[in-house]
Amino acid sequence: MPTLEDELRRLMADDTARLHAAPDLLERVVRSHRARRSRVKAVAVAASVAAALVVVGGPAVYLSAGPAPTAGGPGTTSAVPEPPAIDDTPPAPTEPANLGDLGDGKEFGHVKVGYLPERLVWGNWSIDHGDSYSTSYNYKGDDEGSYRVQIFVYENGAVQELEDRLQTYRDEEEGQEVTVGGRSGYQVVTNVGEDGMAGTPTLFLKLGDRQWAEITFSPVYAKEFRDAEAVTAELNRIGEGLTSTL
């Protein structure tokens, strides 16, 4: 008699028998890789040009004089290049909404941050999706884009999405229910980590019926603490200091 495991194997074999990798997969991978490299180079060039403009000032006149060359534009090349495939076209850059200048970062959206670990400063970055928003904190001199602590806030409609995520952790019996400063929450190490990273210690905290916060430590920052208990204690301190202004 076949076991359940045997039946699973057969089901999976049946369900995937029709699947075959696309014949142009290799081509798409290589093309995408090259397009990405070009974009990285373009960003680097743009950044260096921008830096030159800021530092030198004067040459901006020369750099901005005359029409900017466009790929495939008249006169730029004798051969007309083929138009890029649709999936080669980088998405048009759009600036995501943010919360503006947060000063020391201790008040944003509808929350106040009462406690931040030593040396952490506002990361000069935020994002605002309306019902959910976030900002982060790092050390002075950290690479732009990196973070040590990040706080997400979920309000109104976004709360349901967060509760679905929490249910996932509960289903998988990852993490645990906690009470921090008299408020209910959930503590878990999120992210399996595609590169085998240790994970992101996270405290979800209910600030109100229509508002939750998610406080996360980057894996790099978590390593600064002597052990998981110390990480948890610090997460809790931040959680306790967080107040709602909603």
Binding site: M12, T16, V29
Partner: peptide
Amino acid sequence: EHDFGAFVAARATSLLRVAYL
């Protein structure tokens, strides 16, 4: 590049099935 191409040709379908599952 040749090695990578050979790897994709040999294993892509199997890996696609893992991804699907």
